[in-house]
Design a protein around this nucleic acid. Sequence first.
DNA 1: GACCTAGATTTGTCCGGACATTTGTCATTT
DNA 2: AAATGACAAATGTCCGGACAAATCTAGGTC
Lengths: 255, 255
Amino acid sequence: MAKEQGGGPPRYRQLADVLIGDISRGRLKVGETIPGELELVARFKVSRHTVREALRVLDDLGLIDRQQGVGTVVRARQSSPSYVQSVRTPSELMRYPADSRLIVAGTARVKANRQLARLLDVRTGSDWLKVSALRRLKSNPLPMAWTDVYLLPEYADIVPQIGKRGLMVYQLVEATHGEHVEHIQVRIRAGTVTAELAGPLEAQVGAPSLTVVRHYYGRGGRPFEISISEHPSDRYMYSLDLLRGWQSSDTWTTK
Amino acid sequence: MAKEQGGGPPRYRQLADVLIGDISRGRLKVGETIPGELELVARFKVSRHTVREALRVLDDLGLIDRQQGVGTVVRARQSSPSYVQSVRTPSELMRYPADSRLIVAGTARVKANRQLARLLDVRTGSDWLKVSALRRLKSNPLPMAWTDVYLLPEYADIVPQIGKRGLMVYQLVEATHGEHVEHIQVRIRAGTVTAELAGPLEAQVGAPSLTVVRHYYGRGGRPFEISISEHPSDRYMYSLDLLRGWQSSDTWTTK
DNA sequence: GACCTAGATTTGTCCGGACATTTGTCATTT
DNA sequence: AAATGACAAATGTCCGGACAAATCTAGGTC
């Protein structure tokens, strides 16, 4: 009743959360046309502008497809069970040469600002636990990769184990919390490292690099871990087998 | 009415184009605060809503940073003016997928020399059919991606279809020869484009880019197609869903 | 100087309304 | 049966206005 707006999230975001919840709980099924804007206006007692703002959030998240004259439908994002097995093992292949060392530089609780939210494809203002680490070879003082892992705060207890057992945090989560990873998404960006990411990654501003953003989705499509890796220089080449997973190698040297 | 709107792009996009042009031409410098929304309202005689819609486009493109209470500043980037234009293409592709065109620049029979053999991971001296293509927008003469496809010479008959049906050549091979792709390997390279590859790719020497080398293996592990794609711009992002495969400029148009 | 407060500035949120454009549907016509 | 056209439905664009929240600045206070 009444406004009840004081301090809470904006209404378009509340509405977006409701719709996202409906999708994740299966009340709005994939391929199904969701209620039209005007119906949402009537149902939630907000202006059409607010409805469209909420739908834009879902659109930015890739949850819906909108088409003029047709409507808005829930986008397909389901996982095929047959691949799930092969996704698990492959991540273990993403290991570096045996003489590499992982150094956890620090952890911090962060809220996703706009830039981070866009890069990570999460909602602005959401809380994350950030674990910064770098990997380097014993023989070479120059780090070969920086990684920031963004983890749901509720899994904070596994952080101490990261240094010992590696950065495949989702495996630790599975082992200690029984969570199950359904689906991994990888985004790759070329070019120079920007100052988008605060923290140790700043060291690489201006240097050409490969940025890999990995999303780990738990049951119901809920993202619970995101990792960003920066690989400096163009000396490294990533190898990805679509059926077997990641592998990186330092054998590639240009010039 | 003197609207002069008939058929042209919407006004918020016209305004966005003006602002993007100002940024690319250096009239709005990096780190500089651009005119406030209300000033743009007065200057361009549009509503604030339209101004904000235009700024949202620039925000989506990563060209600006907006902060409440401060203002809107041009985001840091290192690039030549022409480079900025190409940055727009990916997002425009998502907005207007039909606007993209694939142009086959030429074909040639080649023997793999030492550099090429190393890059493609094939035997030196082996014979390949090389198909060079580039993708660009109708509205923008600057290409947004170059691709070289190396194909086994025995599949030469499918080349004429590439322009019409896209660069997923292995799909054509499957359709016309009954070959089956067992496994795709992708190698990703960061950094600046080198002159290792002869041909149209040379145009991008020195510019940061994302290089993707894809291997398609047929039955029995025999590689029958290899494609090299160069994607300029450091804001381009590849999205890979390990359960569903690639989503890139090559597949956006096929939807 | 250090600290605080009031005001101005700027973007963020939200409302109400109007018309345009695209698309699907269905009755009508050929 | 196929093509046409009118209509409805849905999203897209655009306008005007108002207040909220965050930030910076200037001035005053200690």
